[in-house]
Write a protein that binds this DNA or RNA. Structure first.
Lengths: 209, 209
DNA sequence: TAGATTGTTAATCGATTAACAATC
DNA sequence: TAGATTGTTAATCGATTAACAATC
């Protein structure tokens, strides 16, 4: 069933959930698809259709119960589970991400990403720690992945070694990546990779300005 | 003309340019749409169509001249111009981005983003500097935007003030934003905003794992 | 010339939006 | 009941892919 849901729908669902989370609501508060659409910059029919893919959550003439829908979306997106991640590369960006993700844990409400490991190959960095999480040598990855279920690897290494690091991580069982290195990485079927590249984003933006 | 080009095409063009830049090539080296497509994970017809939107750059039976196409894409994307940016928010992420963007300047070949200003409102940060760029109070923004043409604002402030900061920046003439805060920001027509949100990316990834 | 690959038109596919009966 | 809004079907829109004549 998950195969038939387009990526773009999931991205919107994440937005809807954030919108619902940002609203203070009591048990009797409802919101219409038009209101959600307005906040998410999405057509109201789109909102209804996205939600209808997963069930009938609304009430005709009234709308969607805010708390109820929030709960449903949380369940659909698995936002109630804790998700263990590791970070590859503890340079500027990797360090910032490590701090950001470990710090946010306390502030955000249903936050659920736990940084289980930081990896680098620079001897000057291995052995240090960030927000209480030790930086290990990449070749110790298996010891971390073996212990729990690490779902996601955040790639913050230089572009020229990113493919190599991802290959290695896949061999140690990691199946999802968020890649910050400015390269397109090839992964076998069954492995997901999501790219987030500041340079490309800026360049795209630059075209229009 | 630019209005008719879909965003997604521009994003692919950025990818093609990076691919071409990564290839070592002499003046007589050619590449086919199939090869580019392979490296970019895109159908070859797509590649040809994307390029054909801007001109006829190829030669039947041979392909596209690597150096020539690189030059054309650079011109199309404006990757030869220098693009001045400012960064709002000098927390973990803002600092990392500032360092990343100023440092990269030396390493990457046709890199062209110049950090012209860093802004915060925290008195402990205002007056310090990062990689030689001073951190100013947000209310000094106008003095920086007035001096040159600042095209892009990078938003690395907390989510709850992001909209406010963007509004203010728009009032000072900035027309393009790369937003790292986990909120959907409303902007008037004529202003572009691109979102890059680690939390959402991870959550989206989490759905599939 | 024969083989390869472009540029482009036509066909397909999928996603978005409009419309409306069902119903709270 | 009257008004509002859902869930869903049908219509539209746009983007991707296939196909192929042109031609290097």
């Amino acid at each position: 069933m998950r195969n038939k849901i387009p990526d773009v729908v999931i991205r919107r669902l994440v937005t809807y959930l954030r919108i619902l989370t940002d609203i203070e609501a009591g048990p009797d508060d409802y919101i219409s698809s038009a209101q959600i659409g307005d906040l998410a910059a999405v057509n109201s029919a789109q909102v209804r259709k996205d939600l209808a893919l997963f069930g009938e959550f609304g009430k005709q003439g009234v709308g969607y119960p805010i708390l109820g829908l929030r709960k449903e979306l949380t369940a659909i997106l698995g936002a109630d589970r804790e998700m263990n991640i590791v970070i590859f590369g503890v340079g500027e960006l990797g360090t910032a991400l490590a701090r950001y993700l470990t710090t946010r844990k306390e502030t955000a409400p249903n936050y659920r990403f736990v940084v289980k490991g930081l990896f680098d190959i620079d001897p000057a960095k291995v052995g240090t720690e960030i927000e209480g999480v030790p930086v290990r040598h990449l070749n110790e990855l298996e010891e971390v992945t073996a212990s729990g279920d690490i779902k996601i690897g955040v790639v913050a290494v230089p572009a020229n070694v990113a493919q190599e690091v991802v290959n290695y991580a896949i061999s140690k069982g990691i199946r999802g990546f968020l890649n910050f290195a400015p390269v397109r990485i090839k992964v076998p079927p069954g492995v997901r990779i999501q790219n987030s590249d500041v340079t490309s984003d800026l360049q795209e933006l630059g075209f229009y300005l």
